[in-house]
């Protein structure tokens, strides 16, 4: 299942309208969340941590492999690459 601010759209970690996976941003880059993918469980958990459509995120650390650190809602969250790929963002 995939969840979007408005309509549903196809699976896969495809970039759409210039949106990229959160794991594709580099250190210090900012983005705005456009969609969250995954089941209700993951989306609910991510939402509770501040990853919601429209939220501004900033990459604190992305070493290229392994988990990344993202700043969202004044908190730093470590995310596995798998989970980061479920967050689609658009660069400002």
């Amino acid at each position: 299942m995939s969840l979007h601010s408005g309509r549903m759209h196809g699976g896969g970690i495809v970039k759409e309208n210039g949106a990229v996976s959160l794991a594709d941003l580099r250190d210090g880059q900012e983005g705005s969340v456009v969609a969250l993918r995954g089941g209700h469980g993951l989306v609910g958990r991510m939402a509770a941590l501040g990853f919601t459509v429209g939220a501004t995120v900033r990459i604190v650390r992305n070493p290229g492999r392994g988990p990344i650190i993202v700043s969202v809602l004044d908190t730093q969250i470590a995310l596995g690459r798998g989970q980061a790929d479920h967050v689609l963002v658009r660069r400002p």
């Binding site: 470590a78 995310l79 596995g80 989970q83």
Partner: peptide, 9 residues
């Protein structure tokens, strides 16, 4: 079954 790594710092 991938264990999700989501952790507050």
């Amino acid at each position: 079954e991938q264990s999700a790594f989501i952790m507050e710092m």
